[in-house]
């Protein structure tokens, strides 16, 4: 992501801090990140998209262990990254934390947790957001 993109991060705080997506009041489908309109209901959904807070509960649909990370994540490698199927329908890409990399499996149950994601160096902003950890 572009360096120093503070406004870009700031406007995404509701999603990244609190997993706020939205829901189409026509078909009840839930979206994360929020969409301007529902791709199914299209014009019928306009003005009917309502904020919706996701529970943060889900399971691993697929995963990888990242060994070669970008500079921003170098200190964390190797780390597990997964596509998580959330209980309410949307899928999401995030890191899995607080577990051994060998323990990550498809179907593993997860819960979201609030963490530091990356920063813009010593004088730049610190970016927070969601990661996921094991749920029993």
């Amino acid at each position: 992501m572009a360096e120093g993109a503070v406004p870009r991060f700031w406007r995404e705080i509701p999603q990244r801090y609190n997993l706020i997506g939205n829901k189409c009041n026509e078909c009840e489908k839930v979206f994360f990140p929020p969409r301007e309109s529902c791709p199914e209901c299209r014009r019928k959904s306009m003005g009917k998209m309502k904020d919706f807070k996701l529970s943060g509960e889900g399971e691993v649909l697929t995963y990888t262990i990242i060994y070669e990370a970008s500079e921003k994540f170098e200190g964390q490698a190797p780390y597990p990254l997964a596509i998580i199927q959330l209980k309410e329908g949307p899928k999401i890409t995030a890191q899995i934390v607080d577990c051994d990399i060998e323990d990550v499996k498809i179907g593993m149950k997860l819960k979201s947790t609030f963490r530091k994601i990356q920063d813009d160096g010593y004088v730049g902003a610190i970016y927070y957001g969601y990661k996921f950890k094991k749920r029993n």
Partner: peptide
């Protein structure tokens, strides 16, 4: 997707690796 994949630590090989993991499964 810079905002919803790369921002959270996804790399280009990482995305294809997740396809491979699921294909193997």
């Amino acid at each position: 997707d810079q905002e919803w994949e790369a921002f959270f630590g996804a790399t280009f090989p990482g995305i294809y690796a997740m396809i491979a993991t699921r294909h193997m499964h």
